[in-house]
Computed example of a mutant assay.
Amino acid sequence: MTGAELAIAASALVGTPFLLHGRDPRIGLDCIGVLEAAFRACGQKVTLPNGYSLRSRRLPALADLPAKLGLQETPAPVVAGDVIIVRPSPCQHHLAIATAPGRFVHAHAGLRRVVEGPFLEDWPVIRQWRPHPIRN
């Protein structure tokens, strides 16, 4: 799987309903569900953490996430397929998948669906990972 393949898989999820803890694109997805569904669409069998709250002052326990998904931490600039954790507010962390420099797919709780749009500059990037090229 390449970053470009992950970006295409994420883009295909745009319009999916938002559902906290959602893991099935037919029913609904949250931001971690978008990541899981995009990886599955690329042929990667993954099950990501669940049972977290929408708002929290602490970053969720993600220590094993990069290794589990074959991701490597990387500095900017962002390229298609990069996975980022942002902090939209002091009590919220959020995952997004880059589809191009400055554009991301993410599950938008306010709009109640998965969307693609420009990166919001006031959302600080906490972590950024890039897929290792993996062939299925």
Rank of each mutant, 00 (worst) to 15 (best):
T2R: 11
A4S: 11
L6I: 08
A7M: 04
A10K: 03
S11G: 12
S11A: 15
V14A: 15
G15D: 05
G15C: 14
L19E: 11
H21A: 13
H21W: 14
G22A: 03
D24H: 07
P25R: 05
P25T: 10
R26G: 14
I27L: 15
I32K: 09
G33V: 09
E36R: 00
A38D: 03
A41L: 11
A41M: 03
C42V: 07
Q44D: 06
Q44C: 15
T47S: 08
L48H: 00
L48K: 08
P49K: 06
G51K: 03
S53E: 12
S56Q: 13
S56P: 11
R58E: 15
A61V: 10
L62E: 11
A63H: 08
L65D: 10
L69Y: 00
T74L: 09
P77T: 08
A80F: 01
G81D: 05
V83Y: 08
V83S: 07
V86N: 03
R87F: 05
A96T: 03
I97M: 06
A98I: 06
A98V: 04
T99F: 06
G102S: 01
F104H: 07
V105T: 12
H106Y: 14
A109K: 06
G110N: 12
R112V: 06
R113Y: 10
R113K: 14
V114H: 10
E116D: 07
P118W: 02
F119Y: 13
L120K: 12
L120S: 12
L120F: 11
W123V: 09
V125E: 09
R127Y: 04
Q128F: 00
P131I: 08
P131E: 13
H132C: 12
P133N: 08
P133T: 05
P133M: 02
P133G: 02
I134W: 06
